[in-house]
Design a binder for these strands. Structure first.
Lengths: 338, 338
DNA sequence: TATTATAATGTAATCGATTACATAAAAATC
DNA sequence: GATTTTTATGTAATCGATTACATTATAATA
């Protein structure tokens, strides 16, 4: 049976207004009345109807995450699950819930976000998988949809974001390779235009400056699509003999696994001959052989922050953007003894 | 600006009832009126308020997926993402949306499902990660919550489910090992009581019968928790020397990766000395070395089926349970040349 | 043409919550 | 004790849709 606030009011012998007051602990209510109401709620097993709530208050507690149809990258990678887990941990026990809106359109289409917002299915959205100068951001602003961006797709940063320190990530990865003697680091970066790709490249360049190493643009390769993790394999395969390099930094552990396989298949010893550094520290990084040196990002924390920041924005509280620290996890793939 | 059905009615010069009729293509409406209404909808950019819809019709279009806090397994594994992608593909373009309800409680707690349903945040749920005789099923039945189970947790099967053919999966994996000369196959199964674990064991036993091989119960090992994929490594490490085995079947590719590492670390050649078969065919299976022989399940299709079946149930259409075929993908980890 | 049947549209109640405003009760002030 | 102020509670409108029922317009029949 599904009870309404009226049933609670009748059972407690008060008006619906009073019940509402108790339930939202607004206004003043006598301890005695409060107790009567709560007892009635308990007795009936009353659960508020969120459609009614949302209709009346014009406020939806859905936290929207729009997944584009044509994007494989994030969603197939552990990154995605961990991110959701983080959001979940923050949202768990609150009145908010995570809504996955499936976009019929391409990645840069905003209509799914807007529709979900206008339908009141969500009260705000998390913008995932953003590109440089993402066109969706101005649209969300225009329509006053509360939102938080994962990543920093534009320089003016006139929006709230959560991100990991990709500049540092790119830097410590490259530095580590320099420190163990590399001079020419092949950098297999994410897709061009992708928010994170730019920052990681910055870090890569910074490390060169710091170590006084000349940058060879031929060493910087962007994957075309973010869906194909076999890219790591193929890029390295086709680079061998074409470009001279003595170390590899790959923007993603799965691609790094492919890169390592390519080296192995070519009879090159990973670590001793060519050290490899990945990015993400996916669970499997410590299970492959050689185990993978990689940049660890606190993905779950980023998910948590995305959720809590968005809830803050939705409630008109002021929130701040956050950049999370990353660290290098050193394993066998950069060991000279390998 | 957010327009309501009233605005549309005014703009079109008709009543709200007529607008509603057009929008839900119920009843008869003149072509002319329909056109006027649709034009008004177009002009205003009207989007129906789903809270109001849901309140009035007592029908929520949220498809609930409850994620337990204490479960790492599914959510960290590619299985989870792929499953969601499948659901998404089915739901995309429809009026339904996927809601991830985060449970505060342990896996077998049903309250999160019920609460979400009674709040009208979801109109039905997908039951994931089920155990044998899962206690949640009778509760969902009792409260008349539309639901679909992923897996087959009980024998009476008095509910709708989608599942992959785990019996066949366990069987073809074991058979393949027998065919290439194994006599004692170590089986690292999922957690005891887990729906899939039972069926895969059945397949494992069936293969023994078929090949006339005696079953040694010592060879059957259940992982304790499903969260720790290092289990594969540790179980194999501690089994070497303790139990005699000449092949391994691991209920999961990530665990299989750990198992392979354990063999390598012990100086055992994977394939030639001890062949290994995994389960799932995760994307990385073809990127590790040796590449992994594994049982492929159509996870995305299972997700699709889960979504469409639930929508059918929610709409009172009759639906049927589905079992999806699995197949063996043969790679290097079972090659005797490895 | 008058009468009846049918089709198209409108009116108003309803879903379950919140909240502005009204009112009653209690406390504070004189 | 009468008056004012404060506090607690109730009444009723409202959010945006759907839909039973009423009404009007049109078509069919006598």
């Amino acid at each position: 049976m599904n009870f309404s606030i009226k049933d609670v009011a009748r059972t407690a012998g008060v008006s619906v207004a009073t019940v509402s007051r108790v339930l939202n602990n607004s206004d003043k209510v006598t301890e005695e009345t409060r107790w009567k109401v709560l007892r009635a709620v308990e007795t009936l097993g009353y659960v508020p109807n969120y459609s009614a709530k949302s209709l009346r208050t014009n406020f939806s507690r859905g936290i929207g995450l729009v997944i584009s149809h044509d994007v494989d990258y994030f969603i197939t990678f552990p990154y995605f699950s961990e991110f959701i887990r983080g959001m979940g941990q923050t949202l768990s026990g609150t009145d908010y819930h995570l809504v996955m809106v499936m976009s019929t359109d391409s990645r840069d289409d905003i209509s799914s976000h807007l529709r979900a917002f206008e339908r009141k299915v969500v009260g705000g959205v998390v913008l995932f998988d953003v590109m440089d100068n993402d066109k969706r951001i101005p649209v969300l602003k225009k329509y006053k949809v509360p939102f938080v961006v994962v990543g920093r797709p534009s320089l003016d940063e006139d929006y709230l974001y959560v991100d990991s320190d990709n500049v540092k990530g790119g830097m410590i990865a490259t530095e580590h390779l320099f420190k163990i003697g590399c001079k020419r680091v092949l950098f297999i970066n994410g897709p061009k235009g992708h928010s994170a790709s730019r920052y990681r490249l910055n870090g890569y360049l910074k490390a060169h400056k710091k170590f006084g190493v000349q940058v060879d643009k031929k060493l910087i390769i962007y994957v075309k699509s973010d869906s194909d993790m076999k890219n790591g394999y193929e890029i390295v395969k086709s680079s061998i003999g074409q470009i001279k390099f003595d170390g590899i930094f790959v923007s993603g552990d799965f691609m790094a696994t492919g890169a390592i396989k390519a080296l192995k298949d070519s009879g090159i010893r990973v670590g001793r001959d060519i050290p490899v550094v990945g990015f993400d520290d996916v669970p499997i990084a410590s299970m492959v052989s050689p185990t993978l040196t990689t940049v660890k990002q606190p993905i779950k924390d980023i998910g948590k922050a995305a959720a809590s920041t968005l809830v803050d924005v939705m409630n008109g509280r002021n929130a701040t953007s956050k950049v999370f620290d990353v660290s290098l996890v050193i394993r066998q793939s950069t060991s000279r003894e390998g």
